[in-house]
């Protein structure tokens, strides 16, 4: 739009002070292209940030505990986005819970469930139904989902001990082995 205006500015300005119109036109175009460029960069980087620092977040769980990613250094953090209305999430619910029970004794693996666009009541029903024991909380303001640029649920992100995003899966886990094979390498080093 800036382009439209500046070009029409141009029309009139040309006779008196030509440079202004031109500067405005080029400036408007540059702003527009810059916006598109960064917008595109943002879109393109979705799901490709493996190896980069994972976006920070604060998650307040349904029972009131608060987890900050920056305070979880030294632990492998498995962040799972889900929703009670999501059928594929149900597929992986048992696997996730089983994996949590498997790793929980070690103490250096943390599972966090994030309920996306879900009502609290339904979320709690879901957690009850599948007997999920790892911490779960709502994504307040959909901020986490935006930071991780999720495209749907379920999506799972695994963050290594140094806060680096090490693994992302944009579909449900089909077996506990699949989960283990994603987590175990991060525990070795």
């Amino acid at each position: 739009m800036s382009e439209v205006i500046t070009e029409s500015t141009q029309k009139v300005a040309a006779r008196s002070r030509p440079p202004w119109g031109r500067i405005l036109a080029w400036g408007g175009l540059a702003v527009l292209l810059a916006l598109l460029f960064f917008g595109l960069l943002r879109t393109q980087s979705g799901g490709k940030r493996i190896g980069a620092r994972a976006p920070e977040f604060t998650l307040t769980t349904f029972d009131g505990q608060t987890y900050r990613l920056e305070e979880l250094r030294g632990k492998v953090v498995v962040v799972n986005f889900w929703a009670s209305w999501c059928k594929p999430c149900e597929q992986e619910a048992d696997e996730l819970e089983a994996a949590w029970r498997y790793y929980q004794p070690r103490g250096d693996v943390l599972f966090l469930g994030v309920a996306w666009t879900d009502t609290d009541k339904k979320s709690l029903e879901y957690l009850q139904k599948f007997g999920i024991t790892y911490p779960n909380g709502p994504d307040l303001g959909t901020r986490m989902a935006q930071a991780y640029r999720i495209t749907g649920v379920p999506e799972t992100y695994i963050i290594d001990r140094n806060g680096v995003l090490a693994y992302a899966k944009l579909s449900p886990f089909l077996s506990i082995e699949e989960l283990k094979s994603a987590i175990d390498p991060l525990l070795e080093d």
Partner: peptide, 17 residues
């Protein structure tokens, strides 16, 4: 134009859709 572009701008500058 502005209505279409603004969500993009907002997302870029405030991280809020």
């Amino acid at each position: 134009f502005w209505g279409v572009m603004f969500p993009l701008i907002s997302e870029l500058f405030t991280n809020q859709k």
